[in-house]
Nucleic acid binder design. Structure first.
Lengths: 141, 141
DNA sequence: CGGAATCCTAACCGATACTG
DNA sequence: CAGTATCGGTTAGGATTCCG
């Protein structure tokens, strides 16, 4: 097959990646995405918790640190770097004194946010359900 | 408010849980769900990779171990136990010789699978995209 | 303010051996 | 087959200090 449309190539690539395989790049990507801080950072930048979800907001480093209660500087910076490297967020430095740094979702990041948002919502919506099952399970032991 | 319908209580509970708060139970739940093996086990039991997604299949321990390439016995067992405890999967022991153990998604697990499946699909669909951004980022350093 | 660099320990997790 | 139990290495990740 000499010529192949971009859409066709994409479709084939999809079938070639398989996250179940330990050696597949998509598996390593999935491992990175399956990270508590990645999920929470995307949710924060997606607008969760602001009262205006789905309106991608630009947030400063300190705002993120405040919203993600309990995150250390190290983990926050590390997570932000990896998300920037993967093209999921942009990092904008404004040379004020002191310096101001803003983070914002890219279109790619926004598309992933649609899923991470569901994950957070699911956890909050089914917390009671889960707790009941845990109590029941523990009582049976 | 002396009386409150179950639905009303549930609605209020939802607004009370906030996964951004370190002390919130839903935060710890989200942390547990943001785990590579949790995501992959749910995807496997949901039917991903069988060619018949969305048809929740019952799978034996050894089938799971085979499909989740690279998982150790310890992590697989540990993950399955926690999912069973949370009411996301059922564990069925058939007293053959040797014993046969089957795992299957509950309705609750199936509802979460709808999201973990998206996560896996997203990773596979955007792997090329991500890799391009990484190359670009690394080249700029 | 928004980091980088260092140190250090707690946990995760794999490997191995053993069991019903 | 489907685990459990134990040990040990690796690493995630927190606390602290310093910097542009």
């Amino acid at each position: 097959m000499a010529t192949m449309s971009a859409a066709r190539k994409r479709a084939q690539a999809k079938t070639e990646y398989n996250a179940f395989l330990a050696v597949c790049p998509s598996r390593r990507l999935l491992d990175r995405l399956s990270d508590r801080w990645v999920v929470l950072v995307l949710c924060a930048l997606g607008g969760d918790g602001t009262g205006h979800p789905d309106v991608a907001t630009s947030m400063r480093y300190s705002e993120l640190a405040r919203q993600l209660a309990g995150v250390s500087q190290k983990m926050l910076t590390q997570t932000l770097r990896s998300l920037e490297r993967d093209g999921l967020i942009t990092r904008t430095v404004t040379p004020t004194v002191p310096v101001t740094v803003d983070y914002e979702l890219t279109d790619l990041g926004l598309s992933l946010y649609q899923t991470t948002r569901q994950l957070r919502t699911w956890a909050q919506d089914h917390m009671d359900d889960i707790q009941e099952h845990r109590d029941e399970y523990d009582a049976a032991q």
